[in-house]
Design a protein around this nucleic acid. Structure first.
Length: 344
RNA sequence: GGCCAGGUGGCUGAGCGGUCAAAAGCAGCAGACUGUAAAUCUGCCCGGGUUUCCCGUACGUAGGUUCGAAUCCUACCCUGGCCA
């Protein structure tokens, strides 16, 4: 059976509904994966996610490698068992940390030298190592180790990043392919395209990766601060070069509006920290747009956070109550807001 | 009643002759957050204005010294401590 099947297509847009088969269940696409960097979707536990109908979560190679460490996760029997999560897991390779921990790393052809953000110790990530770690974690969808360049980024720099990402993709694939069929069963390694906001570079990157024939493709290096219209333009253009029958994953997106737009352009998969991070910071996604629950007007607003939402928060608690929990620093506020945003 | 210590912006609390509309924290009012070094960060926060600057008020009250006072002096009021 093919790991990805498309069931229906929208007659008016490029949107499609499909099914992605993994070793940990079937995922209905389009799918949004909440981010659980360190083996936890912040403030939530696995049973919360199950209850929300979450089918896929994201874990992070760099963070889990540093803490608790690959040895512990191996002893635990993998990340799924460690965190008691029966659903599918996608792991980011650490490529995003090449961007976010720019001050703490050095890139070479061989890989990336990181200085731990926890204790300053040195750690070398090669494409091979990033792939091996992801295999040990028991990831269902592995990501190639890539260089995610910052925004803004000039064309020369973007080209360099894209080229090294392509070379590393080959090495990741080789490492993955050397595994026994049994070990690979139900697992997939996705390629990640780069090219920043330069259409010609995105094309070049995409074609190079398509040539390697990955089971799925991610669009990387976007949503780093560039204007939203530009992000969507890159997505739209990328679609013409990606094989229609493979899943397409837009990394790091995004807001409810972004998801809506990108699905219409043909994206099948997303992940983003926004629902949980913004939730912890007091911003709710609602059918009426964003709502900063800490704002004064909600002090005596006893209506549900989003009247059109049926999540545990909205079904039972008022804006005034959540406002109060945030104002008084109660931890339940973080959890309820995260719960709502992921549900939304 | 006496002797000490002290009274600073909504609160706590620096400042102790000019560079002070007055540090810092809290509270308050907003904004941001996009493959998580984030329960974080940013801006505003005496009044008014033509708002990288100007004007007016202001460091318990009332006087005084000084070119200049939140800062020094006097009296008074209040708070805390000790002694009677």
């Amino acid at each position: 059976m093919k790991p990805f099947e498309i069931l229906t297509r929208c007659p008016d847009t490029k949107a499609r509904c499909g099914r992605l088969h993994t070793a940990h269940g079937v995922i209905d696409t389009p799918v949004f994966a909440p981010v659980g960097t360190q083996g936890s979707v912040k403030t939530l536990v696995s049973e919360d996610l199950e209850k929300l109908g979450t089918q896929l979560i994201l874990g992070n190679t760099y963070h889990l490698y540093l803490r608790p460490g690959v040895d512990i996760l191996e002893k635990a029997g993998g990340l799924h068992r460690f965190m008691s999560w029966p659903g599918a897991i996608l792991t980011d390779s650490g490529g995003y940390q090449v961007f976010s921990l720019e001050q703490l790393r050095h890139i070479s052809e061989e890989g990336v030298e990181f200085r731990s953000h926890i204790d300053g110790s040195a750690h070398f990530f090669s494409p091979e190592k990033a792939t091996e770690i992801q295999l040990t974690l028991g990831s269902d969808i592995l990501m190639c180790f890539d260089e995610c360049p910052p925004f803004p980024c000039d064309e020369a720099r973007a080209r360099k990043a894209l080229e090294i990402t392509s070379r590393w993709a080959k090495r990741c694939q080789k490492t993955f392919d050397q595994l026994a069929d049994e070990a690979r069963a139900g697992r997939m390694l996705y390629g990640i395209t780069q090219g920043a906001i330069y259409p010609a570079l995105r094309r070049e990157s995409t074609l190079a990766l398509v040539d390697l024939d990955f089971p799925g493709y991610a669009l990387g290096g976007l949503s780093l601060g560039e204007p939203r219209a530009q992000t969507l333009e890159m997505v739209e253009r990328s679609m013409q070069w990606l094989p229609d029958e493979k899943p397409r994953y837009l990394m790091g997106v995004g807001t409810p509006e972004d998801l809506w737009e990108a699905v219409g352009l043909g994206i099948d998969q997303f992940d983003c920290v926004l629902p949980t991070r913004n939730g912890r910071n007091g911003q709710l996604f609602t059918s009426q747009g964003k709502l900063n629950i800490k704002n004064a007007p909600y002090r005596d607003d006893f209506s549900p956070p989003d009247p059109q939402c049926d999540c545990d928060l909205c079904a039972r608690y008022s804006r005034a109550y959540l406002h109060h929990l945030f104002r008084s620093g109660e931890l339940a506020a973080l959890r309820l807001a995260s719960l709502h945003n992921v549900a939304f």
